[in-house]
Structures are given as C-alpha cells and as structure tokens.
C-alpha cells in the first residue's frame, strides 16, 4: 500500500527526528538524553521511513549496511573506554580535553562522548538490522 500523504509527511518527519536524535545524543552527558535514547529516536525515524517508502529506500538512504554501523559503533565505544589508558586511569574513566575554537572559547569534549556516539551507532545499527530484515521478509 502506498500512501502519498504518509510518504510526503515522512520525508519531513524523518529529517526532523534525526536532528532531534542528535540533539538528544549531545545533551545526554548532563541532562536526560544520551546515545541510547537518541538512537531509539533515530531508529524510529528510519522505521517510519521504511513503512512509508519501503526497506530498500532505507538501505539506499543509509548508504552503509546497518551491521557495519553496529561494528563501527562497538569499535568507537571500546576506543572511548580505552582512552583513559593514556592517563593510566581505570577503564571507562572520563578523560576530557578543551579544543580551542577559532573565534575564542573552548569546546569541552571527552571520551564519554565517543562512547555515547558508539552506543548510538550500535543501537541504530542493531534495531535497523532487525527491522529491515523483517520488513523485507514480509514483502
């Protein structure tokens, strides 16, 4: 079944939800949010896209196999956990650094952000693997 209203609305909603998911990911360190929650919103966006336009459209939009996302995410999460090794601190200790910005001010980033991005990718990848497989099976 192809619904013009749904597919048109989905094009707007998907973008909006993806932006929101990144917002959730970034605010996660100090406020409610984080990689897991953000990725669930992102997965919902892709699931909606799959319902409206089909699993193939999602695969085209993603450009990479969702399983690759899982593994890259896992690698990032582990790298985030291993970074404290540089300072000789225990695993998963947060290490922070300030990157100077061109117009003054600093960007405060650290290993928890890398870890969270990793979690984000793992969950998006895993959920999409399941959803896309099932969606293609039904067809």
């Amino acid at each position: 079944m192809h619904s013009l209203i749904l597919s048109t609305a989905t094009r707007f909603l998907t973008g909006l939800m993806l932006v929101f998911s990144v917002f959730l990911l970034l605010r996660g360190h100090n406020e409610p949010g984080g990689g897991f929650v953000g990725s669930l919103v992102a997965s919902t966006a892709f699931a909606l896209y799959a319902i409206a336009l089909g699993a193939q459209a999602v695969r085209r939009a993603l450009r990479v196999d969702p399983r690759t996302l899982v593994m890259v995410g896992l690698a990032l999460a582990i790298i985030g956990g291993l970074l404290p090794l540089i300072e000789g601190a225990p695993l998963f200790t947060g290490v922070w650094t300030d990157i100077p910005l061109p117009r003054g001010g600093y960007l405060h980033v650290g290993s928890p952000l890398i870890f969270d991005v990793g979690v984000y990718l793992v969950v998006v990848g895993a959920v999409l693997t399941v959803i896309l497989t099932m969606e293609e099976e039904v067809l």
Binding site: T68, M71, L74, A75, I78, L82, L85, P90, L91
Partner: peptide, 22 residues
C-alpha cells in the same frame, strides 16, 4: 587490576570488531 579484570570482555569484543572489519 581494572584493566586485568576487563580483559575477558575486551578480548572477545575486539576480536569481533577485527573479524568483522577484516
């Protein structure tokens, strides 16, 4: 010690990532 006790988790995960990225 924190590194030592994490090894049983780290080793399989790193192996999995390497085996996938191969």
């Amino acid at each position: 010690t924190a590194w030592l006790v994490a090894l049983p988790i780290l080793v399989p995960f790193v192996t999995a990532i390497l085996a996938f990225l191969a």
